[in-house]
Design a protein around this nucleic acid. Structure first.
Lengths: 193, 193
DNA sequence: GAAAGTCTTGACCGATTGGTACAGACTCGA
DNA sequence: TCGAGTCTGTACCAATCGGTCAAGACTTTC
């Protein structure tokens, strides 16, 4: 049939994600959002339905993109090394150019979890998934003798998750890289007991 | 002179704090804010000047209230026990009735730090103050032989801060108490190396 | 080339935003 | 008792909020 869309839907969604990530959901007005996406109101509502739906779509894209890389860690030969690499990467992210963005999921956990059930359950699911990844890596490392036999994978996984979340909050708040590096070191130390 | 204020200024500020804490700054409209405070627009602007100023005042009250209790830990005979008590208290808070509030400072770090310089520097100062408290407690514990001589107070202090921040984020997101307890246990373990 | 169908544009909507202004209620000192 | 001075309640403000809709631009199919 006639006339393809004049803009790249996925690309516009990506731009929407960046806008929400940096400015928050309520903090990003439709005007700002449309400017960021480079499309008009009509196209927006025809394509995505609502501001809220775009937030959901953007969040899902964000998470699936991140996790596709995270979960590749499970295939690496040394789970401990993989986990260490992951932690270093997260810390590097929290010092890099986008450091004051923090983590999109964490930002939404704070802003929207208490008022929006859809966001809340998505955020909770994502945190559980992240914890589960850490736990499986730790279990695997344990079975290979790469970490102490006494280590409790579930508890350490949760500790790592909390540490990483805190790191992202601090990065968005604007702390200096030295702070992030200390936290990374503590995260690595957590694998030792 | 004439006519005292018909409402308790400090009490109204306390109510404003609760509103911002739960709903965020931009997420709390003037209408909601005034309803929460139980006063009228005229009184509000005559007394506090602006919505923004009330946020600052509320944040400062929140922090000074919390830290007056936190810093009392420095006077306790056993710094390690004091720190452990503090961590248990924070964890209990994150499981208690106000668990889905999270931490007001953390919430504002996410929402306003990147857009508001006043908030940003206040938040950073507060995080540094919190880190400093942990560090002093750890130094004191170290000098008393309550923690290992090899422990790096600065690094561990930063790890604890990050862990606690993560805990509050997770609590606001709505995780089950078991998660919080695991994180608390990891925080306590961090004192052991 | 005309009909059919999809896309973009921008005018428009009522509601709500944070903030101002002022009339009137009130309490004080003289 | 009567200003003087302060507080409260509310009408009002322009601006912006998220969202709708119809007119027209455009590409395709017949």
């Amino acid at each position: 049939m006639p006339w393809e869309k004049q803009f790249d839907q996925n690309h516009a969604l990506e731009l929407a994600m960046e806008a929400f990530w940096s400015g928050g959901y309520e903090g990003t007005s439709m005007t700002e959002l449309l400017d960021s996406m480079g499309i008009q109101k009509g196209s927006f509502y025809a394509t995505y339905g609502s501001k809220h739906q775009v937030l959901i779509d953007a969040l899902e894209n964000y998470v699936s993109d991140r996790f596709s890389r995270f979960e590749a860690l499970l295939d690496e030969p040394s789970p401990r090394t993989a986990l260490e690499k992951h932690l270093r990467m997260i810390a590097a992210d929290a010092c890099g150019s986008g450091r004051d963005l923090g983590c999109f999921v964490v930002n939404m956990a704070i802003e929207q979890s208490p008022k929006d059930d859809v966001i809340r359950s998505f955020v909770l699911k994502t945190f559980e998934r992240h914890e589960g990844l850490y736990r499986r890596l730790l279990e695997s490392a344990k079975s290979k003798g790469e970490v102490a036999a006494a280590l409790d994978p579930r508890s350490v996984a949760r500790g790592l998750l909390s540490l990483v979340i805190g790191m992202r909050v601090l990065a968005r708040a604007g702390v200096k890289p030295g702070m992030i590096e200390s936290i990374r070191d503590q995260a690595l130390k957590m694998l030792n007991d």
